[in-house]
Computed example of a mutant assay.
Amino acid sequence: MVEILFEPELLEHETQLLPKSFDAECKARIVALGCFDSLVAAVLRVAISEEIASPELSETALSLYYELQPLLRERLGFAPFYPALFSSIDKRRKRWVYL
């Protein structure tokens, strides 16, 4: 996941990895993984989009979040936890429901 989301090397005066552009290719790679880390990446990207007020990032991250839901339910055996997990996320981020 780190290689999908972050630049591979630090710049000269940087102490933290810089995030890559969150575009359709990045989204497709995260969906292809279809793992719990993919869900975490989606939720964090939506939160970041809210912090920096980026409609473009928000749109891409939310579409990733919604696209991952059925994949995770099927692939990881989330079925017993699916309603509670996503309800809990959505309750904490009520604004997402209305976008």
Results as ranks from 00 to 15, higher is better:
3 E>F: 11
3 E>T: 15
5 L>P: 06
7 E>V: 11
8 P>E: 10
9 E>M: 14
9 E>W: 11
10 L>E: 03
11 L>F: 13
11 L>S: 10
12 E>T: 09
12 E>N: 14
13 H>L: 13
15 T>G: 15
23 D>E: 06
24 A>C: 04
28 A>D: 10
29 R>V: 01
30 I>F: 04
31 V>K: 07
31 V>M: 09
32 A>H: 00
33 L>K: 05
34 G>I: 06
35 C>G: 13
35 C>I: 02
37 D>I: 04
38 S>F: 04
40 V>L: 08
40 V>C: 09
41 A>F: 10
41 A>W: 01
42 A>I: 01
42 A>P: 06
43 V>P: 04
46 V>Q: 11
46 V>D: 00
47 A>V: 07
48 I>K: 10
48 I>E: 13
50 E>T: 07
51 E>Y: 11
54 S>W: 02
55 P>I: 00
58 S>C: 14
61 A>Q: 02
62 L>H: 04
62 L>K: 10
62 L>Y: 03
62 L>S: 03
62 L>N: 02
63 S>Q: 12
66 Y>L: 12
68 L>R: 00
68 L>I: 00
69 Q>W: 12
73 R>S: 11
73 R>D: 04
74 E>A: 05
76 L>V: 04
76 L>W: 07
76 L>D: 10
76 L>I: 15
77 G>K: 10
80 P>Q: 08
81 F>T: 07
82 Y>L: 03
82 Y>A: 14
82 Y>W: 09
83 P>N: 14
84 A>V: 05
84 A>P: 01
84 A>E: 06
87 S>V: 05
88 S>G: 14
90 D>V: 05
91 K>G: 07
91 K>L: 15
93 R>G: 00
94 K>Y: 05
94 K>W: 04
96 W>C: 00
96 W>H: 01
97 V>C: 10
97 V>A: 09
98 Y>F: 13
99 L>G: 08
